[in-house]
């Protein structure tokens, strides 16, 4: 039984996109999504080797949200994330080698092996913080936005979370405060309908999340999370609002997790969701539907895609080799940064 259906129109009606955006930009979005997918698949392929001693939360199926969002941000804008960090980190231009070193518990990981895959942080590119506690980063992003407001900066703060994040009390507290202070913050909810294996229907009454958020008195929209251009445009508008002093925006993007909550592979066979539901969403894969759209528009060929694929894989394999050859921390490294001087 398909409980959660894709209810959008894909790229139907987006023919004019070619005129609205530069061709290079449209192709870049494809490459960015493909790169994340290929990195995730390689992580998944190697995960059973136990070299990456870290929990993983793959974003396979959810590439359009990270890529579409980050394309609308400046490097100096700050992104906060949940436990599902890979896509956010990579889309915000986090260094791949530092990410894989972190996942292999090496000292030159992006946070020196103190965080693992749930804490991919790189402040130099604005990947500013994550939380492994659901909704934990939401008030922190509000505090980041308050800082920009107090300091008179036109910096925007964005925080990613899932549908379950809206159930935590602190999210209500943060939406209220953001509305009260007109904070330059974007609350980005990737609604993938499941919290681990608990479906949305057992956790929330039948109601649209973005309408619930609108009740706090901030702009709130729903956007097709499988359509990278729709995400980009929604975030661009939210960014404009934030920079112009118009306050916060809540964005709900329905997407689908093609894999289990954590670890490698799909777990639909355990019975909490129907494999037919997964299949239906795979039909509207954010990468494949976008590829068809670009190909139909004559912006990319299969040969070009294959070349792109090979190029990315070269980078990915090299980064894995680099991580595996990197040094482990030493005991003395345990004791650094307990307190800041």
């Amino acid at each position: 039984m398909i409980r959660y259906e894709y209810s959008e129109n894909g790229y139907q009606g987006w023919g004019a996109a070619r005129g609205r955006f530069q061709d290079e930009f449209l192709v870049r979005l494809f490459r960015d999504m493909l790169r994340i997918r290929l990195i995730e698949e390689e992580i998944e392929r190697r995960y059973h080797q136990d070299q990456m001693k870290t929990p993983i939360h793959l974003v396979i199926g959810q590439e359009a949200t990270s890529v579409g969002c980050c394309a609308a941000l400046r490097k100096t804008d700050l992104l906060y994330s949940s436990h599902r960090t890979h896509g956010n980190y990579l889309a915000k231009s986090g260094d791949l080698k530092a990410m894989l070193c972190e996942m292999h518990c090496r000292i030159n990981g992006c946070v020196g092996s103190r965080g693992g895959s749930m804490h991919l942080i790189d402040k130099s590119v604005g990947m500013a913080g994550t939380s492994a506690i659901v909704a934990g980063a939401i008030p922190i992003a509000a505090g980041s936005a308050l800082t920009a407001q107090l300091q008179g900066l036109d910096r925007v703060s964005v925080v990613f979370f899932g549908d379950a994040g809206t159930e935590e009390g602190v999210t209500s507290e943060s939406l209220n405060f953001a509305a009260l202070k007109k904070l330059p913050v974007i609350f980005f909810c990737e609604n993938n309908f499941y919290s681990v294996q608990s479906p949305l229907a057992t956790r929330q009454p039948p109601r649209e999340i973005y309408k619930w958020a609108a009740g706090y008195g901030i702009a709130s929209v729903r956007v097709d999370g499988a359509n990278v251009l729709a995400v980009y445009e929604a975030v661009r508008e939210a960014v404009k609002r934030a920079r112009e002093g118009g306050g916060a925006t809540f964005i709900e993007a329905p997407v689908y997790r093609f894999r289990a909550h954590g670890g490698a592979g799909d777990d639909s066979h355990t019975g909490y969701r129907d494999t037919a539901e997964l299949k239906a969403w795979e039909e509207v894969c954010p990468i494949e539907t976008y590829f068809r759209f670009l190909a139909d528009a004559g912006l990319i060929t299969i040969a070009q895609r294959e070349h792109m694929h090979a190029e990315i894989m070269l980078e990915v394999i090299e980064a894995f080799d680099y991580a595996l050859a990197s040094p482990n921390p030493e005991e003395k490294d345990l004791y650094a940064h307990i307190y800041s001087d």
Partner: peptide, 24 residues
């Protein structure tokens, strides 16, 4: 710079954390 808050202890503690993380 000196303000009353909503009755949202966890939220405001997070706001403080986020502000402190960014130089306040």
């Amino acid at each position: 710079r000196v303000f009353d808050t909503p009755l949202s202890e966890e939220g405001m503690m997070g706001v403080c954390t986020g502000a402190a993380m960014n130089g306040m």
